[in-house]
Design a protein around this nucleic acid. Structure first.
Lengths: 234, 234
DNA sequence: TGTACATCAGTGAACGCGCGTTCACTGATGTAC
DNA sequence: TGTACATCAGTGAACGCGCGTTCACTGATGTAC
């Protein structure tokens, strides 16, 4: 038992080190962008650079860990916001809450946002297991659309019809996140989704620096207008 | 005269070199991302690395030249597409032509797209004179909205009202690109714009790799649905 | 038209720096008997 | 409970590489008289 406890202490210390390295790496990201430097991380932690290799097999491994963390942390934020609205029938409120949570997350961690939604890191290939965490926010949105639709509270006027090639793929997405919904509605949801992330990229990458001073208000307006577009009513 | 001619020959050779260096740099971008290396460029051109300094004062200077080129080349593509539609009253056709031209440009030069619409290059600050070239495509879009509106062919139903803080800023944008148009309509135009670039970023940065096989068709659908959202009718 | 001088492109060596990764090692901590 | 051994974290030196930028230089090309 004592042995076990001691063993788990070592394991816990190790887990803490894994985290501390990631934290140092995140701080580095804030300065050097995606040009993550293992040596700089080691320096910040007061270790010798080769010591990092006790914890991560390579620079790419560390990058993968950071990317996974970013996806999961954004996913959690979206999920938490989605369930925070007490009135489950308030679909518009849920949509707004999730959209705001995503922006809050991104604005607080612009470099982690850039890591997962910015230009790909040259030479780095994301492994397969980043796919599931990366769609967590889409699942949250899908649930809102699904609920609104099955409650008959989704206005579906003026829908453009997606081309034939797109339908099976839209249907597949819908099956995963909003099974009752038609392809044109699913398409709209993806479009609204795309707009929100487009807005965040524009904001965080500085495109609206000379246009809007209150970027939060501008985002809020977009969230609202996209809700109209989606057919969500209050 | 002969002297002049010779002088201009030298100037022309110099201009060609400026271009060739940029071309080599663009090829490098395709491989290493924004990690532009002067030495690699010199190597590719069969020169010694210091020779580059006869043409560009620093790495940042060259980067600025590339960024300016990218903005202007995208701007030209958008303008050309905008004027290519013979029937000026076909606002929907103009919108689609411009949107398609932008995608065609981006898909042909993903790394230049990333340079201007991806995550900012760490440590690099874009100089002021990139602002004007960067808004050329917005001007093209603005003209279409303006024409559609003054022709009474822009459906303006269900417009959300922008918050007070946003109005003067939206009005200022409108004044520059679509002077007859109201703030809510201007906001919608910017939103449609944001959606298109969001779509391109998602496509080029690989977000829809596992979702859509025919990304051109998906973009086309978005262009169409955004036209509906904007109130453009055929 | 021919010659002396100025301008410019490109060279090659060097400075000072940073990087990821490997490897043999030293000690400390945990484990088995 | 005490001791011998195994595991593991962290060290320090090294490998081999790449980078941006400076500087004194060599020749070739253009200019002025």
């Amino acid at each position: 038992m004592t042995e076990r406890a001691k063993g788990s202490i070592r394991a816990r210390v190790r887990a803490e080190m894994l985290d501390e390295i990631k934290n140092a790496a995140r701080r580095q990201l804030a300065e050097g962008g995606a040009n993550l430097s293992l040596r700089a991380i080691a320096r910040e932690m007061g270790m010798v650079s080769s010591a990092i290799y006790r914890y991560y097999a390579s620079r790419d491994d560390l990058l993968t860990a950071l990317i996974l963390d970013a996806y999961n942390s954004l996913g959690e934020a979206a999920e938490r916001a989605g369930t925070s609205v007490a009135d489950r029938a308030d679909h518009l409120g849920r949509w707004a809450a999730v959209a705001r949570a995503i922006r809050a997350w991104a604005v607080a961690r612009p470099h982690e946002y850039a890591l997962i939604y910015g230009s790909p890191v040259p030479g780095y290939v994301a492994p397969e297991d980043t796919v599931l965490p990366s769609i967590r926010p889409v699942v949250v949105l899908g649930a809102i659309i699904e609920d609104a639709f099955t409650a008959g509270r989704l206005a579906t006027t003026e829908l453009s019809r997606p081309a034939m090639v797109l339908r099976p793929e839209l249907a597949r997405v819908a099956q995963g996140v909003a099974p009752s919904v038609s392809e044109p509605v699913m398409a709209r949801a993806l479009i609204a989704w795309t707009e929100l992330f487009g807005a965040l990229s524009f904001e965080l990458f500085g495109r609206f620096k000379n246009t809007f001073t209150d970027l939060e208000a501008w985002y809020e307006h977009q969230v609202w207008d996209m809700a109209t577009f989606l057919g969500l009513r209050s």
